[in-house]
Nucleic acid binder design. Sequence first.
DNA 1: AATAAAACATGACTATTGTCATGTTTTGAA
DNA 2: TTCAAAACATGACAATAGTCATGTTTTATT
Lengths: 246, 246
Amino acid sequence: MSKRPKKSLKQPPAEQSGPAFPAGLNQIPLLQILSAQDRQKVLGEMTETRYGKGQYIFREGDPTEYFHIVKEGSVKCVKSSLDGKECTLKVLMPGDLFCCDASAFDGASHPGTAQPMGDVSVLRMKKEAYFKMLRGNPDAAMEVIRYLGNRLNEAQEKAKVLALDRADQRLASLLVNLAERSGVQEPNGIRVSVRLTRQDMANMVGVTTETAIRIMARFKKERLVSGTAARLIIRDLPKLRLLAST
Amino acid sequence: MSKRPKKSLKQPPAEQSGPAFPAGLNQIPLLQILSAQDRQKVLGEMTETRYGKGQYIFREGDPTEYFHIVKEGSVKCVKSSLDGKECTLKVLMPGDLFCCDASAFDGASHPGTAQPMGDVSVLRMKKEAYFKMLRGNPDAAMEVIRYLGNRLNEAQEKAKVLALDRADQRLASLLVNLAERSGVQEPNGIRVSVRLTRQDMANMVGVTTETAIRIMARFKKERLVSGTAARLIIRDLPKLRLLAST
DNA sequence: AATAAAACATGACTATTGTCATGTTTTGAA
DNA sequence: TTCAAAACATGACAATAGTCATGTTTTATT
């Protein structure tokens, strides 16, 4: 629930366009499902763009013209209230679809803002072209349905946690999710491969930065986690899981 | 956040099966999109079932075998935590799809419980048959994609409200939604056509029953609403809207 | 290496909401 | 119509989390 930054953001140089046929895209489920030739066609219509700190991929209220896929890095989808508090709906990882946060399948404008977390690479394609492809491609359409169903479940699980759990339980849930979704096994625990400050975490679970800091400090004392944004380690996943599902 | 009822529910007689070709189904968007002959085929594979107070359509954790559509009445989708608190994810109205809450498109078991609110009538169809139909029916598949995108947006908007707003603002949001989604214009205001107790409302916005009662009492004093569950009237929609979006 | 900006930390106090207890009113079923 | 259960109501108090203020540490950049 941090205040919006006070306009002091330095705007990096304009976004740079990458090559139209980037390598290593075959592991993205939503593209994998296509036949080789359809995939080539889709890739031909996609543009890769890189974004850096302080930029926006699109903002809440912007007209929805493109459908996006994260190729590299992570992207956060954010909604803000009128008084400047903001809430991070989801951190999207490579392969995730967003438009935004994954849903201007219905609606003419983006319901949230998409911001890169560090350097990212994003693929995009005209919404209409994508729809046309889906129409002719039942497997791809079914994959999107499956994907959206999954996202809907996730979003509702999140709503449940926000509605019923205390701040420490919500943070524990977040840490468990992070460990599962982006965790890398290390000798002394599971490292979260996304860089998240206490403030980022606070925005993800609907508490203030101070509360997130205090609770994380407690978790650290109880040896459930260690490290900070640059290198966050989950040290006791079972105990966090227990706390999350009390 | 009410405690789960203490097993004192009387179980009404078993559910009764209705006719296989019920009338008045053409206004359901997800069926409307089909060609007349496909629609007949789908209806042929659907069963109508009626449920009453105290019954369950399905429960959290049950295997997902069917895809459902609400035909008449309202159905609530609920998730509970281990300590018995529960949270209502959504109230589904006629035409809404659920499986549940609208998303065992991915996943083998229901992520929530579906409960009738009063007497309801529900259509259902084997999941596999529905998927098969979607595969052969790009228009229908696109409609489902649109629908799920819409639902995802809704769910994320709800998460935002839960994360950032105070109890009174969350309740105001709920009232605004109810007025828009199920409101009937009346001489002295907008009547909410779904019967919702203060406890139902509490479960929908993540507060205790007492808090919901207190805030509704305040709203009543301020002439924003009147009446209770059986006949809830929204008297000042603009003011509620203002409070909701502060 | 110097330095400014973020990020992290902590205390004191306040606001909000939950909990528990108890009582009244309304509703629905026998 | 009666009667029990559910819904609505309210007070007193406790717990939780927010706010504001201030200070330290870490990180990134020149």
